[in-house]
């Protein structure tokens, strides 16, 4: 069995994944801030609408803010969450701990 062949392929896959991750990590906060702005626009438009439509605009704005907050948190903490998961796996499987 030529294990080197698999190792080179694995390194290639990892490099591709690292690139995709970097793109997403950059896109996440940008999208999050765009959503915050969008939520603000929706909220502002809601203010000038009659009261029945205002409620709908405001609830949409709150929904967008919730999504944006979750996206911001996950984009910024994805590394730490994964590291924590890796540490948890190591600690729970290691016999000496």
């Amino acid at each position: 069995m030529n294990e080197n062949k698999y190792i080179y392929l694995s390194i290639g896959i990892i490099n591709l994944l690292v690139y995709i991750k970097a793109v997403l990590q950059q896109a996440g906060p940008i999208l999050s801030s765009a959503l915050f702005i969008l939520a603000g626009i929706f909220y502002a438009i809601g203010q000038i609408m009659p009261y029945d439509k205002r409620a709908r605009f405001q609830s949409t704005a709150i929904n967008i803010i919730i999504g944006a907050i979750i996206l911001a948190i996950l984009s910024l903490t994805a590394d730490s969450i994964t590291n924590a998961a890796a540490h948890l796996i190591l600690n729970t499987t290691n016999s000496s701990s």
Binding site: I14, K21, L24, G28, L35, N63, I70, L71, T82
Partner: peptide, 25 residues
């Protein structure tokens, strides 16, 4: 293998955030 799974998880976490944000919006 461990690196691949961990990086994939990171990608999935961010993708989850993006899809979730769009879904809420």
């Amino acid at each position: 293998l461990i690196q691949t799974v961990l990086i994939t998880n990171e990608i999935m976490l961010i993708s989850f955030g993006i899809i979730n944000a769009i879904a809420y919006a």
